[in-house]
Design a protein around this nucleic acid. Structure first.
Length: 635
RNA sequence: GCCGGCGUAGCUCAAUUGGCAGAGCAGCUGACUUGUAAUCAGCAGGUUGCGGGUUCGAGUCCCAUCGCCGGCUCCA
């Protein structure tokens, strides 16, 4: 007999060899019916797995957080079965559950089309209707290799070969057998609400030197409502796409004849950018930074010394020759900031130094990865380098984090999450420095009460880092702030300061960007706000609309007094109906529309229409101006 | 860079099996003098991404190339 401890502390006894399903049945028939998988000592397990020793047991039902993964994984198998029916010679890669769905990679005799997806969906519906049981089978490595060799599944054979000498399990349902550790639902009728979304190429095991397979992405949820909600969210994301809004709101453009990944900022986009940058600069001065400016190109030795020509060459543009010397366009600002540091002898009394620059850099990005403003070839980092003593580092990191959180709040992002990346196998810098650095990062994150995930070994070779991700209005996470230690460059450039002991010491250097890059941040900002920028960022803050020509004088007076107060305000005195002009301003997402007719002109007041359609009637211009945050001054 | 899809007016999109390149919006001109998401009429707008080929004839078929989109890889 074995004993199983349930989450509520109860203990049930079963014969050794009984399955998880048997345990569920013993707890109650209702639970057995609802069971999707088990959790033994915290590990999700299939219901058909025999229990051979005492353990903690939890039964996963559709209400458990793990449930959707199980269902989606089973859904991937159901899709594979459908594909196998349509392509009997299909070879299968892997087919896992992912955050909002699942995918499966196939090698097929021809490329799949959008129409194929519909056919596969139909076939899947049939598979679901068939309620084929998922049958779990344990076999030896040899048996498994034999089976998958005979069925011509080289990818599966490769996977099995990489497994140790453990028992292999397969799952079969309908006509499809897959190498799989599970868990799976009881039968294919247990999952229903799905949709196939797209087909795309994907390298086998993510390796560009290996064959390209066809990946079909799908999504699945346990209820129809959740599926619809998810599909609606995808629609919403499309509506917010910064590439679409960037065009509609006349913010920026990219011209293939000039070069892909190079951004042209139109007046309205440049205005928003100006407001972002002005705010950014003010805040940096307020938070103890100095602003610096450095060149766009520099001689070869700089990039040799920094190591960029060893490690980063693929991302750098070819040199240009000037007076017989090779100059490179900068892909990063750090070496230039270091030049300023090294321009004179530094004392411990000078530290910490915090130098910030909106530094425009150019990087070669493969053509296939360019994406609107999110991924470009020329961009401006909101870069800064903090050079300090080991004793100062912890406080510096805390200050950066706090600063960053303030900035995100100012741009109306509410959720921020931290990711701490620690020392990889191959790394420069003494272990003790890494340890200090990681500790200071950890403490800072904890002190700010941030949720933090640790990516063990995920740091760069030159130092650990904290990345911050912000959540946008529709729940997507964007990587923005990065705070990176650098143990490499201070060595390479032989940066020193004179300590209180009169000796030379190596300073700590931290590289940080809060917004990441202006371009990318701008894209995120548009998508977060759906293009309807907060008042202080809106390129046009108010449009004044006289009802008829009779009110033009009054309108001009209002416009000029608003302009005098620094408000970005336009007059729309076109000879069109008020509805037409409102529609225009509305589509341009202008925060305020001032409607001026007889009522307003007669008693010297204004009517303001807000973006949400509400009206403020009969108010005094001065009161209106006083009440709004036209400019962001503090965080 | 790789796999697949897509490139038609400034924008959004039509154009039967290969058979006269079209509409709405935006723009311009004029009329209308307007109260909360589109007033009416007229005009103009194109080497169908670029280059080859097949054909009596190509937006449509083939090849090549550039760009964009969805992914892979990578990353701010």
């Amino acid at each position: 007999m074995i004993q199983l401890k349930l989450p509520d502390g109860k203990i049930i006894e079963l014969e050794s060899g009984a399955t998880v399903m048997d345990a569920a049945a013993k707890i109650g028939p209702g639970l057995a019916k609802a069971a999707l998988a088990g959790k033994i000592n915290g590990e999700v397990t299939d219901l058909r797995v025999p229990l051979t020793s005492s353990a903690d047991l939890e039964i996963i039902t559709s209400k458990s957080p793990e449930a959707s993964d199980v269902c989606r994984h089973s859904m991937a198998h159901i899709m594979a079965e459908a594909v196998l029916k349509m392509f009997p010679d299909a070879q299968f890669g892997i087919g896992p559950a992912i955050e909002t769905g699942f995918y499966y990679d196939f090698k097929l005799s021809r490329a799949l089309t959008v129409e194929d997806l519909e056919l596969i969906e139909k076939e899947m519906e049939a598979g679901i209707k068939a309620k084929s049981p998922f049958i779990r089978k344990e076999l030896s490595k040899e048996e498994a290799l034999k089976y998958f060799t005979e069925t011509n599944q080289p990818f599966k054979v490769e996977l099995i070969n990489e497994l140790g000498d453990q028992t292999i399990t397969t799952f079969t349902h309908g006509g499809f057998t897959d190498l799989c550790r599970g868990p799976h639902v009881q039968d294919s009728g247990a999952v229903k609400h799905f949709k196939l979304l797209s087909v795309a190429g994907a390298y086998w095991r993510g390796d560009e030197k290996r064959p390209m397979l066809q990946r079909v992405y799908g999504t699945a949820f346990s209820s129809k409502e959740e599926l619809k909600e998810h599909l609606d969210r995808l629609e919403e994301a499309k509506k917010r796409d910064h590439r679409k809004l960037g065009k509609e709101l006349d913010l920026y453009s990219i011209h293939e004849e000039v070069g892909p990944g190079l951004v042209f900022w139109h007046p309205k986009g440049a205005r928003i950018r100006h407001e972002i940058e002005t705010f950014w600069k003010d805040q940096h001065y307020k938070h103890g930074y100095e602003l610096i400016n450095t060149p766009h190109i520099g001689q070869k030795w700089l990039w040799e010394t920094s190591g960029h020509l060893d490690f980063y060459k693929e991302s750098m543009y070819s040199p240009m020759e000037i007076d017989g010397a090779d100059y490179f366009v900068k892909p990063m600002n750090c070496p230039f900031h270091i030049m300023i540091y090294k321009s004179q002898m530094r004392s411990y009394r000078d530290l910490p130094l915090r130098w910030a620059e909106l530094g425009t850099v150019y990087r070669y990005e493969k053509s296939g990865v360019l994406h609107g403003l999110m991924r470009v070839r020329g961009f401006t980092q909101d870069d800064a380098h903090i050079i300090c003593t080991p004793e100062q580092i912890e406080n510096e990191i805390r200050e950066v984090l706090r600063f960053s959180l303030g900035i995100w709040k100012a741009f109306e992002f509410k959720e921020v999450k931290a990711y701490l990346a620690t020392r990889p196998e191959k790394a420069v810098g003494e272990e003790s420095r890494w340890a200090t650095a990681i500790e200071s990062l950890r403490k800072a994150v904890a002190a700010e009460g941030l949720e933090c995930e640790v990516d063990a070994g995920g740091g760069a070779f030159y130092g650990p880092k904290i990345d911050l991700k912000v959540k946008d209005a529709i729940g997507r996470e964007w990587q923005v702030t990065t705070i990176q230690f650098d143990f490499n460059l201070p060595e390479r450039f032989d940066m020193t300061y004179i300590g209180s002991d009169g000796n030379k010491h190596r300073p700590y250097m931290v590289h940080r960007a809060l917004l990441g890059s202006i371009e990318r941040f701008f894209g995120v900002l548009i998508e977060h706000h759906s293009g309807a920028m907060p008042l202080w960022l809106a390129p046009v803050q108010a449009v004044v609309m006289p009802i008829t020509e009779k009110h033009h004088d009054y309108a001009r007076k209002i416009v000029s007094s608003m302009k005098l107060q620094g408000i970005r305000c336009e007059l729309d005195d076109r000879n069109d109906k008020i509805g037409y002009r409102i529609r225009n301003a509305q589509m341009q997402k202008v925060p305020f529309m001032l409607i001026l007719g007889d009522q307003e002109a007669d008693d010297g007041k204004i009517t303001v229409r807000l973006r949400n359609g509400e009206n403020l009637t009969g108010i005094m211009l001065d009161d209106f101006i006083r009440e709004q945050e036209w400019k962001k001054v503090s965080i």
